[in-house]
Design a protein around this nucleic acid. Structure first.
Lengths: 150, 150
DNA sequence: TTACATGCAAAGCATTTGCAGATAA
DNA sequence: TTATCTGCAAATGCTTTGCATGTAA
């Protein structure tokens, strides 16, 4: 049996999430707790409504798709998740709370986080008066396609 | 009557577009020519299927929405347009052929071009073997939202 | 007790598709 | 002439919503 070094963890990501729900007047119901567990006790992840639905099903539980959609939206609204729009008909949600952007490789339908420091923005068009809530950068990569040109 | 200085313009954006259609085996039909005129004879633009449909209607012509969708997709496939996915259920198409990225201001539903030189990317994760077709950067801006946090 | 949540089924919405009739080459 | 295109309506796929039932506090 291996020795496990247990660090003192007064507030896990999961517990923080539940606290944030309460602080924002959202009841920690059974469904929300199940989803929070899946989302925040497995490191940094990118999930879709559908993939979450599948994960719940695989644990022999059942949460309706509608509830999953609604919950993802609520979690996003209170800042527990970030929505990434990679494609129409495909919204992903990201659990990484650190400052970062996203690299989307279209052909592989794959999302990779990019540390904010790797992207330098110099955008004079942003009006100074605009109070920013968030800047999302999505770098979208497509592989070569042959084309006849003039 | 004002004097018009006419520059010699052997190949307008419109004519180039039509040529590119032919080169790629796509017939320059009546509908495609109408759309190409609207798209490429009015400078740099960001259009949606819907806004194009409206423009066609305002000229007292009629092209079905389905044909507009299909045409936008074809034009994009042969590189005449660039698709910008700003939101699920909202694709815009951009006629600017110069190298540039996009700034999307969510609250105003507005897209602004950003010159490529204003964005510095340092993305080690792109595999060297990946032949790039295109890198799109969408900078998505949302204004401030109040939130209770831990 | 009661305001809020859930789950189902139905609705919504942008987009795509099948197919019969039309058209460019 | 014939392969391709157009337009309609129907289908699609993700997401949202209305509403009756269930549940947290």
């Amino acid at each position: 049996m291996s020795l496990k070094i247990q660090t003192f963890n007064p507030l896990s990501s999961y517990n923080k999430a539940i606290n944030k729900l309460k602080l924002n007047g959202i009841r920690p119901t059974k469904q929300r707790m199940i989803l929070a567990k899946i989302l925040f006790e497995n490191g940094k992840r990118h999930v879709s409504a559908d993939s979450l639905f599948e994960e719940v099903r695989k644990e022999d539980r059942k949460i309706s798709l509608a509830t999953i959609y609604n919950t993802l939206k609520q979690f996003t609204n209170i800042g527990l998740l970030r929505e990434i729009v990679v494609d129409q008909n495909k919204s992903l949600y990201c659990t990484n709370k650190e400052s970062h952007y996203h690299l989307y490789i279209e052909d592989e339908d794959k999302v990779v986080d990019i540390p904010t420091k790797n992207v330098n923005l110099d955008i004079p068009q942003i009006p100074a008066c605009l109070k920013l809530h968030n800047i999302d950068v999505i770098v979208r990569i497509r592989t070569l396609k042959e084309l006849k040109d003039i």
